[in-house]
């Protein structure tokens, strides 16, 4: 039954209502704020850092937080705050580019696979199954362990690893949309495949894709940090957060801040992105699409 239902509200209030609902979820607001701050940090951080990330002052080594060194200094007397600021750019650019790569390729494959169907779909999806049968961290480690962890390689690996997840989400949306009557109506009037795919289907893929992308971004940060910790991240002297934590372990009893500040930063960012992605899901997919 439809329709003798009350008149629908006017369009302008749609976003306003979404934000009104958001206010009930402080975690989401927190997420957006954190990601925003880190984003600014990635852009301006290296410029405003009080010290150069590689400046060593051995007499100043392992000093606790002070007005001079906000987060203290490490085993070489380097300013931890400046190193974190500078390192944020790598985290954002590597995890971000990896995510963008995965989203672009996953979108392409998912669209093709879902729209073409048949053998092409079967082949692509079995290929994705194979990639998914290897745990992501394992695959990342053996690839980076052999080709070496340069910035570019890490981006490629992150992008490559998350293609299957993205393309599955896209494919399932395409499969749903392509049987809808408005797509049949488009066929009925003789639209080209190009028009149907990009004008009728794609706009409906974008909201769930945005949610998926934000989730992938959070996993990418997680993965990049873990790789850094295992020594497969961006190599020294660049200040990789994961590597800073790993190195800090040696001084844990003596100077826990060497480890705690970068670890806390990673925690804050990852949690912030996760909360943001959860909020995006609430806003963009109010019906609740689960993975």
């Amino acid at each position: 039954m439809q329709s003798a239902q009350p008149a629908k509200p006017v369009p302008a209030s749609r976003m306003a209502r979404a934000f009104k609902r958001l206010r009930r979820y402080p975690a989401t607001l927190f997420g957006f704020a954190v990601v925003g701050i880190f984003f600014l940090m990635a852009i301006f951080g290296p410029m405003v850092a009080p010290y150069k990330f590689s400046d060593q002052k051995l007499i100043n080594k392992l000093k606790p937080a002070s007005a001079e060194h906000l987060f203290g200094t490490d085993q070489f007397g380097r300013d931890i705050f400046s190193r974190i600021l500078t390192g944020s750019r790598d985290v954002f650019s590597i995890a971000g580019s990896g995510t963008v790569l995965a989203v672009l390729l996953g979108l392409t494959l998912g669209l093709l696979s879902g729209y073409l169907g048949g053998m092409a779909d079967e082949f692509l999806m079995r290929l994705m199954d194979v990639l998914l049968s290897i745990p992501p961290l394992l695959l990342a480690m053996i690839i980076l362990g052999t080709v070496g962890p340069s910035r570019l390689n890490i981006v490629l690996v992150v992008g490559f690893l998350y293609i299957p997840m993205v393309s599955r989400v896209v494919r399932s949306v395409v499969l749903d949309i392509k049987t809808r009557e408005f797509v049949e109506a488009a066929k009925m009037r003789g639209e080209s495949n190009f028009y149907i795919l990009f004008r009728e289907i794609l706009p409906n893929v974008l909201p769930p894709l945005a949610v998926e992308a934000s989730m992938r971004f959070s996993y990418s940060i997680f993965l990049v940090a873990s790789l850094g910790f295992l020594g497969l991240g961006v190599q020294p002297p660049s200040p990789d957060w994961g590597m800073m934590v790993s190195e800090g372990r040696t001084w844990f009893n003596l100077a826990p801040w060497v480890l705690l500040y970068p670890a806390g930063t990673i925690a804050l960012l990852v949690v912030g992105v996760a909360f943001m992605s959860d909020g995006l899901r609430r806003m963009l997919l109010p019906g609740g699409v689960s993975n």
């Binding site: 979820y25 873990s226 790993s246 844990f252 705690l260 990673i266 990852v270 996760a274 959860d278």
Partner: peptide
């Protein structure tokens, strides 16, 4: 629900080397 969801989402997001080291500490 908000508490459980929030905390579990936070933990799910934390890399093991962070939680592990915090636990050790």
């Amino acid at each position: 629900d908000q508490l459980i969801s929030g905390i579990s989402m936070a933990f799910a997001g934390l890399p093991e080397f962070v939680t592990g080291l915090l636990l050790i500490g």
